[in-house]
C-alpha cells in the first residue's frame, strides 16, 4: 500500500496498518496453502506460499536445471568419437534433450521469482550445486552406455514421483522430462548390450564401465535418510514423495534383472535377494567419496565448471548480437510507423 493512501493518518499508524494487513494476508495465505497441500492439490506461481517453500523449491529446481546443463558434458565429449553415424545422431539427440530439460526446469524455477540470469550466474560463479555424478569422467564408449543405463535410469526413478510435486510448474516440467528420459535409458542399455555381446575386449570394457558407475549412480539418490535433513520437510510439502533410501532400493531392485539380461554383473559381493524383505540387500556405499565430490573434489569438478564458463563467455557475442539486431529491428519498425502516421 502506498503512503499516499494515508495522507491524513500519522505515518506510524499507517505502518502499523500495513503490517497488520500483511499479517492477515500471511495468515490467510498460510491457511489456504495448508489446505491445498492437505488436499494433495497443486500450488501455482501466483499463489501465496511460505518463503521457506519458495526458497527450497528454487534451490531444488535450479540445482536440477544446472545438473541437466552440466550433464551435457560427459556425453557431449563423445559425439565426435561415437562409433557410427547413427550412434552420433542418437547421442546428439540425447544431449539436445538434456539442454531442453535444463531449459524446462529454469523456466519452472523462474516462475518462483528468481531471474534466469541469477541462476546462470550462480552456476558460473560456482556457488550453485549440481548432481555430483557429472563430475565423473566418461572414459570409454562403454561409459556412455553406463551413463545412459545407470545415470539416466536412476534419474528416472527419482523423477517419476516428482511429476506429482506440489508445485505445478515443476511437476509439469517433470512430466515432459520423464517422457523423454526413457529413450536415454534404453539407448544406454543397448550400447552395453552390443558391447557385452561383442569381443572379449568389448565385454570387459562394458563390465568396467558398469563397475565404475554403479556406486556413483546409487549415490544420485542422495545421502542415507538419517543424513538428509531437508527430506522430511520436502515430503511434508509433497515435493518429494519417497525417501532417498526408498528410491535407492527401488532402483537396485530394478537394475538387478537388467544387468542379468546384459550378461554382466554389479560390483557388489553383498548383493543378494532378501526373501523376508522382498528386496535386494546391498552393501553400504562409499559416503566419504560422495561428500568429497559434493564439496568440489570430484575427478572433474574443476574442468566441468571451466568448460561451462568458457562456453558462456565465448557465446556472449552471439547473445549481444541477437539483442542488437532485435533492438534495431524494433527501432526501424517504430520509425516506419511514425512515417506512416506522418504521411
Amino acid at each position: 500500500m502506498s503512503p499516499q493512501n494515508h495522507q491524513h493518518a500519522p505515518l506510524r499508524l499507517a505502518d502499523e496498518a500495513d503490517a497488520a494487513a500483511a499479517r492477515d494476508e500471511a495468515e490467510s495465505g498460510q491457511h489456504r496453502f495448508d489446505e491445498i497441500i492437505a488436499d494433495d492439490s497443486r500450488i501455482e506461481p501466483r499463489d501465496w506460499m511460505p518463503e521457506s517453500y519458495r526458497k527450497s523449491l528454487v534451490r531444488q529446481v535450479s540445482q536440477h536445471a544446472h545438473s541437466e546443463i552440466i550433464g551435457m558434458q560427459p556425453e557431449g565429449n563423445w559425439i565426435s568419437r561415437a562409433p557410427s553415424l547413427k550412434r552420433k545422431a542418437i547421442l546428439m539427440a540425447k544431449v539436445q534433450d538434456e539442454a531442453g530439460h535444463g531449459l524446462y526446469l529454469y523456466s519452472a524455477a523462474e516462475t518462483l521469482g528468481t531471474p534466469r540470469e541469477d541462476m546462470y550466474d550462480q552456476l558460473y560463479s560456482g556457488k550453485a550445486k549440481y548432481s555430483s555424478i557429472f563430475n565423473y569422467p566418461a572414459r570409454t564408449w562403454a561409459d556412455v552406455g553406463a551413463i545412459g543405463w545407470l545415470v539416466d535410469g536412476a534419474a528416472i526413478v527419482n523423477q517419476v514421483p516428482l511429476c506429482r510435486a506440489s508445485y505445478g510448474p515443476y511437476g509439469r516440467a517433470m512430466v515432459r522430462i520423464c517422457k523423454e528420459e526413457s529413450f536415454h535409458q534404453r539407448q544406454g542399455w543397448e550400447i552395453l548390450y552390443s558391447l557385452s555381446h561383442g569381443t572379449q575386449e568389448q565385454r570387459e570394457m562394458a563390465q568396467a564401465a558398469v563397475d565404475r558407475f554403479y556406486g556413483p549412480a546409487l549415490q544420485m539418490f542422495g545421502p542415507p535418510d538419517g543424513d538428509s535433513p531437508n527430506s522430511q520437510q520436502s515430503m511434508a510439502w509433497n515435493i518429494k514423495r519417497f525417501t532417498n533410501d526408498e528410491l535407492r532400493q527401488r532402483f537396485v531392485d530394478m537394475i538387478v534383472p537388467q544387468v542379468e539380461a546384459l550378461g554382466l554383473t554389479l560390483p557388489d559381493p553383498e548383493l543378494k535377494w532378501n526373501e523376508e524383505r522382498g528386496h535386494y540387500d546391498f552393501a553400504e556405499l562409499d559416503w566419504d567419496e560422495f561428500f568429497a565430490v559434493i564439496k568440489g573434489n570430484g575427478p572433474l569438478s574443476r574442468q566441468r565448471l571451466e568448460h561451462y564458463r568458457s562456453a558462456r563467455d565465448e557465446g556472449a557475442w552471439v547473445r549481444e548480437a541477437a539483442v542488437a539486431y532485435a533492438n534495431r529491428a524494433s527501432q526501424e519498425q517504430d520509425r516506419d510507423r511514425a512515417a506512416l502516421i506522418g504521411a
Binding site: 540470469e117 546462470y120 550466474d121 560463479s125 556472449a316 547473445r319 539483442v323
Partner: peptide, 10 residues
C-alpha cells in the same frame, strides 16, 4: 561476472 551481454536480458 561473465560479460556485459548478460545485463541485456532476453
Amino acid at each position: 561476472m561473465s560479460s556485459s551481454a548478460d545485463s541485456s536480458t532476453w
